[in-house]
Nucleic acid binder design. Structure first.
Lengths: 178, 178
DNA sequence: GATACCATACCGTCCAGCCGGTCTTTTTTG
DNA sequence: CAAAAAAGACCGGCTGGACGGTATGGTATC
C-alpha cells in the first residue's frame, strides 16, 4: 500500500501538461504536483520516457474502456463505428487534458506513439469489417478523428454550436450505414 | 544577397524536426544543419519563438499557395471544398516534414497556433458559404483533416492503399455536393 | 566607415538522472 | 512471537550536460 499510487502520478503529469503546456512537463513539476520529491517520482517510474509511456498507455486504456461501454448501448451491426465516434466525442468533452499527453509524447520521442499507432490500426480494421461500406465507415471515422485532433491541438474552438450539429450528423450517417 | 537566406533556415529547422523529433529542435541543431553559427542564426531570427512563428507562417503560406493553385482547376461552385481537400492530401505527400512544425510549436507554446486557428476558421467559413450543404461540406473537410493529422502525428502508415481509395471517395463526395 | 552578416566565447538557467541516507513495511529466522 | 534482516518507499542534494540568449569582435560590401 503506497501513499501515492502510480495512477495519481499520471494524473498529475496530465494536469501539468494541461496547465503549463507540454514543454513544461518536467519531473520536478510532476513531483511537486502530486506532493512527491523527484527522487520518489523516479522510484516509481525509472525515467521520463517510462512516465510518458505510462501516460500513453493510460490514454489507450481509457479509450478502450469508453468504447466498450458505448458498444453495449449499440450492439446492432455497424454499431462499432457509432460507438467509436461517440468515444472520440466523449474524450474531447472530458475536462482532463488527457489526450494532450499525445503532444508531450510525440514531442519527446515519436517512437512512443507505436502502441497508439497499433491501436488505431486495429480499430480501423474492425470498423471496416463491421460495415457494409468499409470506405464510408472509415471516412466517417476519420472525420471524427479530425475533429478530435483539431480540439487536441487547439486549432478549433470548443464553444462552436457547429460541434453538436456535426456530431449529430456524423452519428446519423453512421447509423444509416449498418 | 546573403549566403543563407531566411527560407533556408526554416527548411533546416523543418529537417531537424523531421529527423530528430520536435524536442530536439534546438538553436544549435538548426544552426549546424544550415552551416551557420548560433550567433548567425540569431541574427536572422531574434529568438526561438520568432523562428517558430516564421516556420508556422511558412506552413500557412504554403497551404494558401497550394489551395489557390488547385482552386484554379476547380472553379465550379463547390470547388472550394474540393481544392481544400486536394491541398491537404498534397501537403502530406510532400517529403518535407513541413507540417510537423505544428508539433514543435504547440509543444513550445500553444499560443503560437493562434494564426493557424484563425486560418482554419476562415477556411471553414468559406467552405460552408460555398456549399449547398454546409454541414456535409464541413464533415468532408474534417475527414480530410483527420487523415492529415493522422499522418502528421505519425499514428498512421503511409503505404496503405487505403489512402488512394479514401482520397477518391472523398473527392467524389465533395464534387457531388456542389 | 557604416551597415549587414556572421563566428567565437561565454553566461545563467533548467533539467534528467544519480546517490546516499531515512523511515516504514514485510519477510525471515531463531 | 520477537528480533533481525531484507525490501520498499521516499527525500533532498548534487552534477553534468544541454540550451537559450548575450557580448564582442571580425569581415565584406557599398
Amino acid at each position: 500500500m503506497s501513499k501515492v499510487d502510480k495512477e495519481a502520478i499520471i494524473r498529475a503529469a496530465e494536469d501539468v501538461v494541461r496547465e503549463n503546456g507540454a514543454r513544461k512537463l518536467t519531473l520536478d513539476a510532476v513531483a511537486n504536483r502530486c506532493g512527491l520529491s523527484k527522487g520518489g517520482l523516479l522510484h516509481h517510474y525509472g525515467s521520463k520516457q517510462a512516465l510518458l509511456q505510462a501516460m500513453l498507455q493510460s490514454v489507450v486504456a481509457r479509450e478502450s474502456e469508453l468504447a466498450n461501454a458505448y458498444l453495449d448501448c449499440n450492439d446492432q451491426p455497424g454499431g462499432l463505428l457509432v460507438s467509436r465516434i461517440q468515444t472520440l466525442f466523449a474524450m474531447m468533452e472530458e475536462p482532463a487534458g488527457l489526450p494532450r499527453s499525445l503532444i508531450a509524447a510525440v514531442a519527446e520521442d515519436p517512437a512512443l506513439l507505436e502502441p497508439i499507432k497499433n491501436q488505431e490500426e486495429r480499430i480501423r480494421n474492425k470498423v471496416c469489417d463491421d460495415s457494409s461500406d468499409p470506405e464510408m465507415a472509415l471516412l466517417l471515422l476519420c472525420a471524427a478523428r479530425g475533429i478530435f485532433f483539431g480540439r487536441v491541438l487547439g486549432v478549433v474552438e470548443e464553444d462552436a454550436p457547429l460541434f453538436r450539429r456535426l456530431r449529430e450528423r456524423l452519428l446519423k450517417l453512421a447509423q444509416d450505414l449498418d
